[in-house]
Computed example of a mutant assay.
Amino acid sequence: MKKLTVATILAAMTVSYSAQAQVYQWEDDYCSMQGSFDNKKYTAKQIENSYFVLEGLNRLNIEGFVSVGDIDALDRLSMKDIDTLTEEYEQVKSNVERLNVVPEAKGYKQELLKTIDGEYERNRLTLLAYLNPSEALKQSPKMCKTYIEPFLQSEKAVQIRWKQFVEEQIQEQSQYGADEVARYRKIATKRYQQEKASNPAKYAKMDLVRLGYGNCVNMQAYRADSDRVYSDTKKLNKTLFGNSFKEMCYEP
């Protein structure tokens, strides 16, 4: 899908007036678009906000999440990170709630708010699983609890579950055939052995929480289908601009 960026919309939007018809123009990375709309029915700002909402369904809206990319980052995590995440979430959600969109885009706005809620919950639970597995377990989707339950048992239980998780990841490659399973097993086993020899407690925690639990929680969060968003964008183009809509795209 050709995606619109907020900066591009704001910078490239051009509106010209002619009686009840206004020409609205905007660009994305590869295309220039324009169409005439009835300024008795809509405003240019409503249109801008409506496309911003649709774009939000295909992007990450909360960008301040602290992703643990290495074991040293585990020691830098604190409950303050959750507070910071919550502040950003509340601001992002408030900004969207205030947007005035065209009537035909009100459903997309509600969908975006639902998407933002899902992003926040996913990120919050992942951070909580690192910092307070007991509390995270109480709030977790049932199917995701398996990844953090061992942290409430013993280090031995954690190591056993980590090894099981590595095998589960290997078996996920079976959809690509036996050769791919064999290839990935070699890579995954070597990495597991190196990490286990280096710092088994921290690597187990990072893999089980980030890759296991985090991905599981992510699967439960709402996310709009990108093909449907693309189709809905085309429908909105037709609704707002009718046959006046024009699009010129360039080869990347």
Rank of each mutant, 00 (worst) to 15 (best):
K235I: 10
S231Y: 09
T239S: 07
A182Y: 09
A178N: 11
Q194T: 05
T239C: 04
G212V: 11
V209C: 10
S244W: 04
I187W: 15
P200I: 01
A188I: 02
D227M: 06
Q194F: 01
T189D: 15
V181T: 12
L240A: 03
A224N: 05
Y184N: 11
Q220R: 13
P200Q: 14
R185W: 03
A197V: 00
N237W: 07
S244Q: 02
E247L: 03
D207W: 15
L240H: 01
L236S: 10
S198I: 00
L208N: 06
Y222D: 09
A178C: 03
R228M: 09
Y192S: 03
L236H: 10
A197G: 07
V217G: 05
G212E: 09
K196L: 05
F241R: 08
V217S: 07
D232L: 08
A178W: 14
Y203E: 00
R183I: 08
C249W: 01
R183W: 13
Y222N: 09
N243L: 05
L236N: 06
Y230G: 07
Q220W: 10
V229R: 05
Q194K: 11
M248F: 02
D179M: 11
G242C: 08
F241K: 07
T239Q: 12
D227Y: 08
S244E: 05
A201D: 14
R223D: 11
K246E: 07
F241Q: 04
Q175E: 13
M248N: 07
S198M: 07
R223Y: 11
T239H: 07
D179G: 08
R191A: 13
E195K: 09
R185G: 07
T233P: 00
S226E: 10
K186L: 14
A224K: 06
K235C: 06
A201L: 08
L211P: 01
L240F: 02
C249N: 05
S231G: 06
A221S: 15
A197C: 00
Y176T: 05
Q220M: 13
R183Y: 15
D232M: 06
T189W: 05
C249D: 09
Q193D: 11
L211T: 12
S231E: 15
F241L: 04
C249Y: 03
S244Y: 05
N243P: 04
Q175A: 13
E180L: 10
N218S: 15
D179T: 13
R191M: 10
N243S: 13
R228Y: 11
Y192A: 04
L236Y: 12
S231N: 09
S198P: 00
Q193Y: 01
D207Y: 15
G212Y: 03
K196D: 01
Y222E: 12
Q175S: 09
L208A: 05
D232H: 07
K235V: 14
N199K: 06
I187F: 15
L211S: 14
Y192K: 08
N243W: 05
V209N: 10
C249I: 01
D207F: 15
K205E: 10
S244L: 02
A178D: 13
A182F: 03
S244F: 06
Q193E: 14
F241S: 04
